[in-house]
């Protein structure tokens, strides 16, 4: 059995070295981009993933890692100083409200992770099916959906998030959910667009028509034939959007919307409280939450761009060594000078 495809008429191309077959466990699927990447791409992917993992670990194990809880203002009966310099008790100092900066920064990662996971799940759950249906069904439904999504897309994203957060604050108790929904509203159009675009091109594929000829219902076609071939573009955009979402989350927090200070620690809120401190030479209250935002955004962007480079066929450049033609490996030359008349 050979891997050579044979299409008469198509130019003879070397056997394509596409991405490895999608099979085996989910682990090998996740590992695939790391194996395929090279050089700068690989550096981006690995660094981004490593930093992201550290932040995720910090978030999950925040109660174990952070010296105090995010809303602790005293230890052993002694109140922390307000705006206290880094000390043995409070290694990164304390805030204007007398909270421990280190604890708040670490708990901030937890908040960010919670909001991100919720927001991504919501966006996927809404954006992907809408994109699939809109793209496959087409017609008026598609036009209306595109109009709505484009209208959402046209809004400045922070404004949209503010409006959404503002409207929802009174109906939903959990600030985390409110913020996640506000972010979802901002990012759904992007998922919708990407999924709809790839659905539109996949819809024309012969195997979709074959499924129709088989007698499959539209819902079956969408589930069994389109979904698997369309979602491949989603991981990249999900990661890039996640990076963007951190900024939106911080922006909302900075404006005092969404998450209430009593509910969770939030980097954006902390930054806002630290504004006055910076002028007074109190650097630690702003530095650490700010660093948290920068690191998280950078890490996720690196992963997203790295994935894009590897998975996007238009950007992918294969790095393959130029083969060396060794004399031992070759057959004889069929030079006409060695002609010999056959008897």
């Amino acid at each position: 059995m050979t891997a050579t495809t044979s299409v008469t008429g198509a130019p003879d191309t070397p056997p394509t070295t596409g991405p490895p077959k999608r099979r085996g466990g989910i682990l090998s699927k996740i590992a695939a981009p790391y194996k395929q990447s090279h050089g700068v791409q690989r550096f981006m992917l690995v660094t981004g993933t490593a930093v992201s993992l550290i932040i995720v670990l910090l978030a999950i194990f925040a109660p174990l890692i952070a010296p105090f809880s995010f809303d602790t203002y005293q230890a052993d009966g002694a109140r922390f100083p307000t705006q206290g310099e880094p000390s043995d008790v409070n290694p990164w100092g304390t805030t204007v409200q007398g909270f421990d900066v280190m604890s708040r920064t670490i708990y901030g990662a937890r908040t960010a992770l919670e909001v991100l996971i919720l927001a991504v799940v919501f966006s996927l759950a809404i954006g992907v099916p809408l994109g699939l249906i809109s793209g496959y069904v087409g017609g008026w439904l598609d036009r209306i959906m595109v109009l709505i999504m484009d209208a959402l897309f046209a809004f400045p994203y922070l404004l949209l998030a503010i409006v959404a957060a503002f409207l929802l604050t009174n109906t939903i108790d959990s600030g985390i959910v409110v913020t996640a929904i506000a972010i979802t509203v901002v990012y759904v159009p992007q998922y919708f667009r990407v999924v709809r675009a790839s659905t539109l091109s996949a819809r024309e594929a012969t195997y979709i028509e074959a499924a129709r000829a088989m007698g499959a219902k539209p819902s079956t076609i969408i589930r069994k034939y389109l979904f698997g071939n369309v979602v491949q573009s989603v991981p990249v955009i999900a990661t890039l959007n996640a990076a963007d979402a951190i900024l939106t989350l911080a922006g909302l927090g900075f404006l005092g919307l969404g998450i209430q200070p009593s509910e969770a620690a939030e980097w954006g809120y902390d930054l806002q409280r630290a504004i006055a401190d910076a002028g007074a030479g109190i650097w630690w209250t702003a530095l650490y939450p700010g660093l948290g935002i920068v690191l998280a955004v950078t890490a996720l962007t690196l992963v997203g761009e790295g994935l894009n480079d590897v998975l996007n066929p238009t950007l992918r450049r294969r790095r393959i060594k130029r083969p060396v033609i060794s004399s031992s490996a070759v057959g004889p030359a069929s030079a006409p000078t060695t002609e010999r008349e056959a008897g």
Binding site: P14, K321, P323, V324
Partner: peptide, 9 residues
């Protein structure tokens, strides 16, 4: 000869 991941084509 082309280079490919599996070797020279």
């Amino acid at each position: 000869w082309y280079g490919a991941e599996r070797g020279a084509v």
